[in-house]
Nucleic acid binder design. Structure first.
Length: 283
DNA sequence: GGTTCTCTGCCGC
DNA sequence: GCGGCAGAGAACC
């Protein structure tokens, strides 16, 4: 009994320290260095870092970055100019923010302010051994690879994923790109040497990054991915992020299976998942 | 391009 | 539970 109470109080202590660090990060003009956060929490930088991550699922640096991006977004939404928003979010200089803006907002600040992504997305639909395949590209790179049984369904899916975008059918030059992607889907081991335009929340991005590290021909469980991104208890959220993935095969969510080896689900049909895994294992 | 800070796996207490 | 080192990596100037 006594032991339990002690364990409880340690946990409470930690959550209070982590919460205090979060508030500090939120209030600070620029991200406080790790050493200062740790000193305030009364822990060594090493240990504090681990405690923080185990509670929040992200490192203090990531937390600060996510919070800045959030401030940036709300400042832009409230109608401030891009420059004002950059400053009020605590980015030291405009130029520094611009370098990373695509990462934070998924688009340039001006595009964001103009009501989301109205950029043009070009797409084309082709056929591969797994059925119909849609490849879409923004000016940043491939933003969607979708698979399905019929072309209309895929086009609707694309429109739903990018409701603000202007979708245009691809020209002949674009067909070559589709052919390249189809070739990649048939033989994923070759790799896809094209830039990707990956859009999602910070958490989704972390999951997708982890997925890209799973080598072809192997699999990982949802729990393993959760562990790799340092968020052991987020197994279900990992599954959610996999399901939200818009870039099939290039972000290999098909390589994530249940802990017992069962295939679990696949956004584009379990049969396609099975086929992909079998062909990768055979290569 | 060098420096400084961050992050993580591993080990010791 | 906590601290610390080593080494890789990212951010910064």
């Amino acid at each position: 009994m006594r032991k339990k109470a002690e364990g409880q109080s340690t946990a409470n202590n930690h959550s209070a320290r982590v919460a205090a660090a979060c508030r500090l990060i939120e209030r600070a003009e620029s991200a406080p260095p790790l050493g200062r956060l740790a000193a305030i929490a009364g822990l060594s930088p090493y240990h504090f870092h681990r405690v923080f991550k185990s509670f929040t699922g992200m490192t203090p640096r990531e937390y600060a970055a996510a919070h800045r991006a959030k401030r940036m977004r709300s400042a832009l939404r409230s109608g401030k100019s891009v420059t004002e928003a950059v400053m009020s979010a605590g980015y030291g200089s405009g130029s520094r923010f611009y370098e990373k803006s695509t990462e934070h907002l998924g688009m340039t600040p001006t595009q964001f302010r103009n009501g989301g992504d109205q950029a043009t997305i070009r797409f084309a639909i082709g056929q591969c051994s797994l059925g119909a395949i849609l490849v879409a590209q923004s000016d940043k790179g491939i933003c969607a690879i979708l698979m399905g049984d019929d072309a209309d369904e895929l086009a609707r899916d694309l429109q739903e994923r990018f409701p603000q975008a202007t979708l245009v059918g691809g020209d002949r030059k674009f067909e070559r790109l589709v052919a390249q992607v189809v070739g990649f889907v048939e033989a994923p081991r070759m790799g896809l040497d094209l830039p990707l335009d990956i859009r999602g929340t910070a958490f989704q991005q972390r999951v997708w990054k982890a997925l890209q590290k799973i080598p072809a021909g192997t699999t990982a469980s949802y729990a393993e991915i959760a562990k790799r991104i340092g968020s052991t208890s987020s197994t279900r959220a990992v599954a959610g992020a996999c399901a939200a993935n818009a870039i099939a095969v290039a972000i290999p969510c098909h390589r994530v299976v249940r802990t017992d080896g069962g295939l679990s689900g696949y956004r584009w049909g379990v049969e396609r998942k099975r086929a992909l895994l079998e062909s990768e294992a055979a290569e």
